[in-house]
Amino acid sequence: MYDKGKIVAGLVIFFIILAFPFWYNLGQSSPAPELELTDKAKQAEKCVEDTALMTREHMQLLHEWRDSVARDGNRIYVSENGDEHVISLSDTCMDCHSNKADFCDRCHNYVSADPYCWDCHTFPEENN
């Protein structure tokens, strides 16, 4: 192999740069935030679907809701147990989860998710 030294040095530098996020954040890890529920959400015990499912797949559900309203004009969601919910981010979701900063943002910030919902959609003033 020609230029062995240069290649090895180049590779080392490359991997150091590649690993930047790991060594840069070394020792700064923070525990995953706990979900904080409002009293109303606690009382309801269950969101429109099971809590585990909502935690895992709320983004898919929100996508489906969005397409249902924006494209099909269907504004009622029938959940698995037959309950009907009006599809509305501001009025349905944020009615229980009115603590956006604690409920939405903390987890999203933790995982660096930056949904652009709030660029347009308004939410009722936080009341806690």
Binding site: E57, Q60, L61, H63, G73, N74, R75, I76, V78, I87
Partner: peptide
């Protein structure tokens, strides 16, 4: 994009979305 999956959506279930009365 993965679809939102509930047990109901896997069988042939009643429609999950409908118009407002």
């Amino acid at each position: 994009t993965p679809k939102f999956t509930t047990a109901a959506s896997e069988e042939s279930a009643p429609p999950k979305y409908k118009e407002r009365p």
